[in-house]
C-alpha cells in the first residue's frame, strides 16, 4: 500500500504530493506511517505529534478527505473502507485530488487554518476564537473551605463537553468555517456551553450572550459534520441548539 502526502513549505508556488510505499502491518496508524516516511523516505516531512494515544489533540489532519486524528486512525481499516464518514460538502473535501482509495491513503493538512509546512497548520485562529468565549470558570459564590458539592447526575452532561481535546477536527470539517472565516466554530461554542451548564456557575444567560453575535450561535446551519468527525463524541450541535433555545426564550420573556 501507499500513503500519498501533501507537501508544502514557504516559497513553494503550489503544494505537491509525495507517495511512499509501506507494509500495512496490523496496528499501524497514520501517525506510525508518517514516522516511517520520516525515517525511511524524507526526513523533512513536518507533522504534529505528542501523546500518540488520541488524548492530546495535536495530530488532527485530513485523512482520505475526513478530518481525523492521525494517531487514532488505523491504516488497514482505511483500506478496507471501514472508516468512511459521510460529510456535508465544503471546498477542501471536494477538491479533486486523484487517489486510488484501495491502494492509497491520502493525507493532507487540516482545512480552514493556514498551512505552515506540510501537515502542520497554524492553530492561532482556532485558539483565538476559543479565547474569545472567555473559557474560564466563574463561580457564583465565594470560595468555600472544602469542595463545592455537585449532583453526580449533573456530571454526565458536563463531561460530554469537558471531553473536548481542542484538536480542531470539527473546525476543519465545518462548512460554515469554510464560508465564514469569522465563525467561532463548533469547539469554541461547545466550550462556552460547558461553562454555562456548570451548576457551580451562576452567570446564567450572561455566559451565553458572549456568543449571541452573528459569528456565534446564529451562524450554524446544522450540517453536523462536527459531530461526525469528533474523536471524543462531543456534540456541539446540541449545545448550539440548546443555547439558541435559551436565548430565544429570554428574548420572549423580556
Amino acid at each position: 500500500m501507499k500513503i500519498k502526502v501533501y507537501r508544502y513549505h514557504d516559497g513553494m508556488k503550489n503544494p505537491r504530493y509525495d507517495t511512499f510505499e509501506l507494509e500495512p502491518k496490523p496496528g499501524l496508524t497514520i501517525l506510525g506511517a508518517l514516522f516511517q516516511f520520516q525515517q525511511n523516505f524524507d526526513d523533512s516531512i513536518a507533522f504534529h505529534y505528542s501523546c500518540r494515544g488520541a488524548v492530546c489533540g495535536t495530530c488532527a489532519m485530513l485523512i482520505n478527505k475526513v478530518p481525523r486524528l492521525a494517531c487514532r486512525t488505523q491504516v488497514a481499516s482505511l483500506l478496507n473502507g471501514d472508516l468512511k464518514i459521510p460529510l456535508s460538502p465544503y471546498h477542501a473535501i471536494e477538491e479533486n485530488i486523484e487517489w486510488d482509495n484501495k491502494e492509497e491513503v491520502l493525507i493532507e493538512p487540516l482545512p480552514h487554518l493556514p498551512v505552515i509546512k506540510d501537515l502542520i497548520v497554524d492553530m492561532g485562529k482556532f485558539f483565538e476564537y476559543y479565547k474569545d468565549i472567555e473559557p474560564v470558570f466563574k463561580p457564583a459564590d465565594s470560595t468555600p473551605e472544602k469542595e463545592r458539592l455537585m449532583d453526580p447526575d449533573s456530571i454526565p452532561e458536563l463531561e460530554l463537553y469537558t471531553n473536548c481535546i481542542l484538536c480542531a477536527a470539527c473546525f476543519g470539517s465545518c462548512p460554515i468555517d469554510d464560508s465564514d472565516p469569522e465563525y467561532l466554530g463548533p469547539a469554541a461554542l461547545a466550550k462556552l456551553y460547558r461553562f454555562y451548564i456548570d451548576p457551580r456557575e451562576e452567570n446564567g444567560i450572561e455566559r451565553l450572550k458572549i456568543a449571541d453575535i452573528p459569528r456565534g450561535w446564529w451562524d450554524c446551519k446544522f450540517h453536523g459534520n462536527c459531530r461526525r468527525v469528533c474523536p471524543k463524541d462531543v456534540p456541539p450541535l446540541i449545545a448550539i441548539a440548546k443555547a439558541r433555545e435559551q436565548l430565544e426564550k429570554e428574548g420572549e420573556d423580556r
Binding site: V136, F137, T143, E145, E147, L149, M150, P152, L158
Partner: peptide, 20 residues
C-alpha cells in the same frame, strides 16, 4: 484537590455531591 475544584475542574462525584 480542593484548589483545582475551586478553579473549575470537573471531578467525579459521590451520591452526596462530594468528590469521588
Amino acid at each position: 484537590v480542593y484548589e483545582l475544584e475551586h478553579m473549575g475542574t470537573v471531578w467525579s462525584r459521590l451520591e452526596n455531591g462530594k468528590i469521588a
